[in-house]
């Protein structure tokens, strides 16, 4: 299972679909899963000291905590990206308008300078 996950992950990175920043984190997760699969001592130890009856429940708890943390992290990331994309959209609208104004000005100047020459191809 861990092996399949590892290979899948490797494939994603090779195709550059996953940023290295995240790949490190997911590799860590795979490593932990791999480790716990062959050596369950830490899991049973945690279960015994915290009073959790089944070691598998400890695993579930840790997994839920980890995934919740990731979800929160991604929410923050999406919020930031939304803000950034809005700012880009506003900037683009502004630049778009400036460019149009500039073009209009140029059209005016050229039509004043050289009668009607090239007036037809100056349109967008």
């Amino acid at each position: 299972m861990a092996l399949i996950l590892f290979l899948f992950l490797f494939q994603l990175i090779r195709k550059k679909k996953l940023k290295e920043q995240y790949s490190l984190l997911w590799f860590l997760v795979v490593a932990v899963v791999f480790l716990l699969a062959i050596w369950d001592r830490p899991l049973t130890w945690i279960s015994e000291t915290t009073g959790i009856q089944l070691p598998s429940n400890t695993l579930f708890l840790l997994a839920i905590l980890f995934l919740s943390g990731m979800a929160l992290h991604f929410s923050l990331l999406v919020s930031r990206l939304t803000d950034q994309s809005t700012m880009l959209a506003q900037k683009l609208a502004q630049l778009d308008r400036d460019l149009r104004k500039q073009q209009e000005q140029q059209d005016e100047e050229s039509s004043h300078g050289r009668s009607h020459e090239g007036a037809s191809d100056a349109r967008d």
Partner: peptide, 25 residues
């Protein structure tokens, strides 16, 4: 009139802010 066209939907808040930025500049 002056026209500022947003490349995708940003909602009323982002739209108004585009206008405020223009007014500011």
């Amino acid at each position: 009139v002056e026209l500022l066209s947003l490349p995708f939907n940003v909602g009323i808040g982002g739209t108004m802010q585009t206008g405020f930025k223009f007014a500011c500049r």
